[in-house]
Computed example of a mutant assay.
Amino acid sequence: MRFTSTPRGARLARRLTSHRLNEWGHPYTSPANETVTLITAELTANAVRHGHVPGRDFRLRLAATGRLLRVEVTDTRAERLPVTAAPYPDEESGRGLLLVDALADDWGVTPRPAAPGKTVWAEVRLPVAVDTP
């Protein structure tokens, strides 16, 4: 799905992720839902803050294959690659990808094949989904 490259767009992408996971059998308060929603929040916030190009949206893709869930966030700014160096202790930002690194089973960055930009992706192994009423 496409979202405007604004804080509102990032918030809507995060909410969509949580709703989709709930539909897929991972309730809102489950560790799986909370973990993947947090990863999505960090990746979409980075797309808005560091990958923003005026007039261009970012894309969110959620794909589940068996128990593996992949979150992909694509923006149109290729020259700003994610940095995972730890910030100074008194800095107020710069820890998002450290969280992604700690929570995801794997993550990385790939260039967009046919357009400028990049996709930052993260994969999480989910527990077996539970049936929701």
Rank of each mutant, 00 (worst) to 15 (best):
R2E: 13
R2N: 12
R2A: 05
R2K: 14
T4F: 13
S5F: 05
S5K: 02
P7A: 05
P7L: 01
G9R: 03
A10F: 01
A10E: 04
L12E: 15
A13L: 01
R14L: 11
R14N: 10
R15P: 03
L16I: 04
T17W: 00
T17H: 01
G25Q: 03
G25P: 08
H26M: 04
P27N: 10
P27W: 11
Y28S: 09
S30N: 15
S30C: 08
A32I: 06
A32Y: 10
E34I: 09
T35C: 14
I39R: 02
A41L: 05
E42F: 02
E42S: 07
T44V: 12
A45F: 02
A47Q: 07
V48H: 02
V48I: 05
R49F: 06
H50I: 09
H50G: 06
V53H: 00
V53S: 02
V53N: 02
V53I: 15
P54A: 15
D57M: 11
D57W: 09
F58P: 00
R59Q: 13
A63V: 06
A64P: 00
T65R: 15
T65D: 15
L68A: 14
L69C: 07
L69Y: 05
T74P: 00
T74M: 13
A78F: 08
E79G: 11
L81V: 11
V83G: 09
V83I: 06
T84D: 14
A85C: 08
A86I: 08
A86C: 11
P87M: 03
Y88C: 11
P89Y: 05
E92F: 08
E92W: 06
S93A: 13
G94Y: 00
G94K: 06
G96D: 12
L97K: 07
L99T: 15
A102Q: 09
A104P: 06
A104F: 12
D105V: 07
D106I: 02
G108D: 03
G108K: 11
T110C: 04
P113Q: 10
A115G: 04
P116Y: 04
K118H: 03
K118I: 15
T119S: 04
E123C: 01
V124H: 01
V124G: 00
R125G: 01
L126P: 02
P127T: 01
P127K: 03
V130K: 05
D131E: 10
D131I: 12
T132Y: 03
T132E: 03
P133L: 06
